[in-house]
Design a binder for these strands. Structure first.
Lengths: 311, 311
DNA sequence: TCAAAAGTGTTATCCTTACACCCATGT
DNA sequence: ACATGGGTGTAAGGATAACACTTTTGA
């Protein structure tokens, strides 16, 4: 359809590697904590996934479990630097931190360091009411038309769960993008090549679009754990139900109801008892469970949600 | 991380444009019907979506409603032709066929032409029992180990809804890939550079990976209609509930239960009456409805599915 | 009068939610 | 004794699936 040399672009792979350790959600970053691991797409492999897996395991010495492509987007930063169009192909990968080895040139960071407003495990984060809410109100009113004010406020309220709206943990990306629009994240000022308006902007910023990519990953993962048993990729081979619950809570950023969570797990027959008991915990010792790996096969079925006609 | 010139690649955009016309699901193809519309990624736009939208509207004269990125993958075919690595960035777009204009160099095709085994609206397709089922059984037994035979058969049965398993309409891609492995689609023989084993392989084949991309799009759309009100992008401004149901049936490839479907729609408050009645239909005239567009705002909420702790 | 499609009701069942309460262990 | 966490039971409400039946039109 076109001559070849003209439309060539630079393509990079960017990975969001997630682990949950001691009930905290963690991501692998470079030493500075401001970049996600990224590398050139060289691809002597058949699929991009294989390429990514090989690259990650070579560089981090981490075995990589579940991998899924997130999104492909143009990278304005790198395009400018290189003078060529650049795109980034981003991936979400689930692993576990290894106690023995170092992170291989990178380091693990709590993901709420970058998104402090996303952690509702102990109730609404203070900075929501203290900082973000007033800014959103101010922004809503900073437009002449009454109609437009309402529209802005409705968007803000729904995105951040204000004004009677429920908090929806899946809207990570929408929240980041709204904060970006308002100049409430450092990246907005960087991209506009201006010094920030205020000294303290919430959350650690990152290079390039990496914080946006992380937001995409968090949103995807928070959505996914609800209908696919991917949490188990983050668990050790044997675990207690409380550990499992805390892992889900770490990802979802919300506290869960203990009994109902347990009923849900057992009713879906996702786990089976090992017969062993956990040791060295406070309180009554808990049964150890393992993931029933054959559910990965069984659960190709998803449940239809459409009112099918006569079976 | 690397010198720049080395890893440049060719990037193309590939679009799966879907419409539902007269209760039939249709996709836009080139005149031959063997290619999806595709074009070079030139991208003077900020986002890839904007780039795609501009490109599609320029080439097809179709306004493009909902757009979503599907997947990015290496294109072996084009890589060979060009001698450079090539990747394709694929998109799903929802539109409506326009009665007035031509398709602008392309044409609309029924998507079940490419996937005849996916249409269960009038019960199980004949070619499933006649052709595919026996081949799957044969393939399952074509391995020495008893254990491996069972594993193969379990995979086949679950993927195609055989042997007591339920048919799951979302597994479009898995089914295509299994058929590809078995050499039951023409592309498998083409890629192996061999003449096909049998003369009649089910479904119209396509160039490159385009049929695989179409499978990805179908799977994504079939999943999406269950939890996001995207069907309305395919509907005229006013419609009857039967038309709406038939559109969903066209996409899902299954017949739905009329009363329960209607209850579902009305209970979710997705539509409102226009006050008008449909004319020129068989049977009793139906009320006309329109989509309540503010639900797009309201339904940022998704429903949590996690057992949250004390509200 | 009949076919086709629009509508109305009703029932049983299951899942979700929300409580309340008891059990086992370490300090 | 008490704090911490494990584990059981149950009742209310809503959503879903499966029926059966009536109404309104065009041919």
């Amino acid at each position: 359809m076109n001559d070849s040399g003209l439309h060539s672009v630079q393509a990079d792979l960017v990975a969001v590697l997630v682990a949950v350790t001691a009930g905290q959600p963690r991501i692998l970053t470079t030493q500075t904590g401001r970049k996600l691991p990224a590398g050139p797409f060289s691809a002597h492999h058949r699929s991009l996934q294989a390429s990514l897996r090989a690259w990650v395991e070579a560089h981090t010495h981490h075995p990589l479990g579940y991998v899924e492509q997130l999104y492909t987007f143009p990278d304005g930063d790198r395009s400018q630097q290189l003078g060529v169009r650049a795109i980034s192909i981003s991936y979400l990968g689930l692993t576990r931190e290894r106690e023995d080895a170092q992170a291989g040139g990178g380091m693990w960071q709590d993901w709420y360091r970058y998104f402090p407003w996303e952690d509702w495990r102990s109730g609404a984060p203070a900075l929501l009411a203290a900082t973000i809410d007033p800014q959103l109100r101010h922004w809503s009113q900073a437009v002449p038309d009454m109609q437009a004010q309402q529209a802005r406020w409705q968007r803000a309220a729904m995105t951040f769960g204000l004004d009677g709206c429920e908090w929806n943990e899946e809207l990570v990306l929408q929240r980041y993008e709204l904060l970006y629009e308002l100049g409430l994240v450092a990246e907005a000022w960087r991209d506009a090549a201006q010094p920030p308006d205020r000294s303290l902007l919430p959350g650690q910023d990152m290079a390039h679009d990496h914080r946006r990519i992380l937001a995409t990953a968090m949103a995807r993962l928070r959505a996914k754990i609800k209908y696919r048993p991917v949490v188990f990729e983050l668990m050790p081979p044997e675990f207690t139900l409380l550990q499992l619950q805390q892992t889900v809570e770490a990802l979802a950023g919300r506290g869960l109801h203990k009994q109902n969570f347990r009923r849900l797990i057992e009713q879906q027959a996702l786990v089976e008892e090992t017969g062993q008991m956990a040791v060295g915990t406070a309180g009554r010792p808990a049964k150890l469970f393992r993931f029933r790996s054959n559910v990965l096969l069984e659960r190709a079925i998803a449940g239809s949600k459409l009112p099918l006609a006569r079976s």
